[in-house]
Design a protein around this nucleic acid. Sequence first.
DNA 1: GTCTATAATTTGATAGAC
DNA 2: GTCTATCAAATTATAGAC
Lengths: 182, 182
Amino acid sequence: MPQNETIRDAILDAAEGRARVAGYNGFSFRDLANDVGIKSASVHYHFPTKGDLAHELMERYRIRALETLGSPEDPDEALRKLTALFRAAATGQEMCLCGALGVSSAALPEPVQLSAKGFSHALMAWLKEVPGWEKGLPLPPETLVSLFEGALLLSITARDPTFFEVAIAPLVSVTDSRRLRP
Amino acid sequence: MPQNETIRDAILDAAEGRARVAGYNGFSFRDLANDVGIKSASVHYHFPTKGDLAHELMERYRIRALETLGSPEDPDEALRKLTALFRAAATGQEMCLCGALGVSSAALPEPVQLSAKGFSHALMAWLKEVPGWEKGLPLPPETLVSLFEGALLLSITARDPTFFEVAIAPLVSVTDSRRLRP
DNA sequence: GTCTATAATTTGATAGAC
DNA sequence: GTCTATCAAATTATAGAC
């Protein structure tokens, strides 16, 4: 929590941490207020409803992820960047926000549903912007992103950061030399 | 809801449906009572706490899954059976219970944490009991189960059953002839 | 922008009658 | 086993003072 951060961002930071650990129904406005050091009515001033908050949270998460991923020049670099993104989550034992919310998609306000879907779509679209992805990636974008989300999900379920590494090991070894795709 | 079903099983059925759609915090004892046609105090008679209920739910889910999977004689049959299990969930747009609960593992009562972890472990152990799995499966068990969970998770997130098929397409085509593993 | 106060509802859980 | 009745706490959200 940097000192030059707005209250608004501090609320989003608190919400992101709690949502990634406990899901949409796993945190309350009072939780966030306590985290930030204000009252819950003040949280409502910044975000009228919980749906508004979660929607903006998901949008910020997508924008930041794409910033982190950048514009790789080749498929190997793209795979390394994507691996690093999910590995950081596994190491910290925090689910990807997209999976944390999307798993209960049908129970979410529609704008939150759409932004969660938008995140996964954005990751796959990002892979398809990499020059030579069709022949250079070891698996198609949909399969790769599914594998990363699933490996992270089971790593959280097992409460074991190393499970992630075991699950994606075939990708990593392939990055060195060989191809998975037939 | 078969007529020869015990109230206890009917409660578990209702809980399973709701937990797979909305997660651990996405249903209440009153929801289940209404689904079954009794009062919430009666649900507490069968399951004293919500943790008790979710733990038993997860155990039943694991036992049933292993019954459905059976004892395949070769890796190709095993992959077909596992695909069918996850495909059914994707078609019905219901998350795997293990993922639905495990995604918020840190926020669950410990017995529920352990049974969710136990389910994913059971699937991988089941694959490793199949004769010839080491050379016959297109990917290692940890990678395969991660891919299935992730493809299902993103299929739910996208609210699109066909995403699952796209994500696992490399596996299916490989079942016909080739190998993914280098 | 933040507060106090509060409304209206829901939640997990228990006591005790039948 | 199921019910009525109830509790204490938590939840999302709003009104209005400062």
